[in-house]
Write a protein that binds this DNA or RNA. Structure first.
Lengths: 195, 195
DNA sequence: CATTTAACTGAACGGGCGTTCGATTGAAAA
DNA sequence: TTTTCAATCGAACGCCCGTTCAGTTAAATG
């Protein structure tokens, strides 16, 4: 068997995904051609098909990877203690996880419409699972009298939109560092649901 | 001169824009062909060019129209009285304006990347103008001691993300009517910035 | 050194793209 | 009734698309 070590595929494979992620985040899936992705990687278009089945599953893989990473990281968040403390930790986690992943966030939110029904359902289930972690915190806080929230589901979706929206304007070279942004949003979120 | 009255152009023109808006909101600009838009209208693709210069300017027109409508409507909002009252009216306005315009909101936010530099700058300036109306309310409230906000600019962007996010999940056939949604968000927003 | 085969090239496939334009149509104007 | 021309058709333009695949290359194996 030839070339088990030193194989290029372990280099090219990730490069394909990285190039696709960057280009799709910037221009949208439909606006990016396989030839553009290939050029970014430095191969011909046909070579991409050593690493992907087709464009559709490339897109889905990017989104699924992002959501899996998110769920795994979110599972590590310490939600012990009272609801206000858990909410603060969740808020800080959400920001620090999403801010360095602008491309992934863009793709995972804007390319949902390009998924087929089956793949869409998978991504939505994962997103729902993440949302439920926040809603559980809110429900706990309401039950304990720490929070006053009219509708925990709507508030969950609202808070996630509030937090994820940061990726639309945050500039790492701008006047605010991540800690400052976290502090601002921790205040907004905790006050919004406070008793 | 023939056919000044009864001309089809006054019918077909708006139909082209309506079909383009619906299709682009659903599938994205790059994924929708001129032939698809034409089929929706009931003409051949070539006929579209009686009403548009090219695909780019069709997209821009849709976005510009939406932003103009928004600014005109926002200018009618009563912002007299104290800051908390103005904030509640702004919140209610934002929701009732955006909720029935899901397609316009989708297109105006997700197709920004498909605009050239000049057109992008125009849309962004209009959006900034709208945001500034909210920031002015926040600044007034902070100055009067009605609000406590660490950063009015960041809070403005956050609140708009919070409110606009409703269009991503609201279902007119769902369990909540617009009044209820407005009430929930008025509470969230006013508490978030409260002193 | 000879062999093997993973990785990649480069051409080709059928098809759809945005856009243009001469020909056609049919209702209002004369 | 004849003329006019706004509105539209329908074909064509050159180009790029996603994907396939026989052939080439070159590095690890034996």
């Amino acid at each position: 068997m030839a070339r088990k070590q030193g194989s290029h595929s372990e280099i090219t494979g990730p490069k394909v995904r990285a190039a696709a992620l960057r280009l799709i985040a910037r221009y949208g899936c439909a606006a990016v051609s396989m030839r553009q992705i290939a050029a970014e990687v430095g191969v011909q278009a046909g070579a991409l098909y050593n690493y992907i089945n087709d464009k559709q599953s490339l897109l889905f893989d990017l989104m699924e990877s992002h959501m899996k990473e998110l769920l795994e990281a979110a599972a590590q968040v310490d939600l012990s203690g009272d609801a206000p403390a858990a909410l603060e930790r969740f808020t800080r986690f959400h920001i620090q996880f999403h801010l360095p992943r602008r491309d992934q966030v863009f793709v995972s939110y804007m390319e949902l419409r390009n998924l087929n029904e089956e793949n869409f359902a998978k991504i939505e289930a994962m997103r729902r699972s993440y949302e439920d972690q926040l809603e559980t915190i809110l429900k706990t806080g309401v039950a304990n009298g720490d929070f006053v929230v009219t509708d925990t589901r709507v508030t969950t979706l609202g808070l996630i939109a509030l937090l994820t929206g940061i990726t639309n304007w945050y500039d790492p070279q701008g006047r605010l560092d991540i800690d400052t942004v976290q502090a601002i949003y921790v205040e907004l979120v905790s006050k919004a649901v406070a008793a």
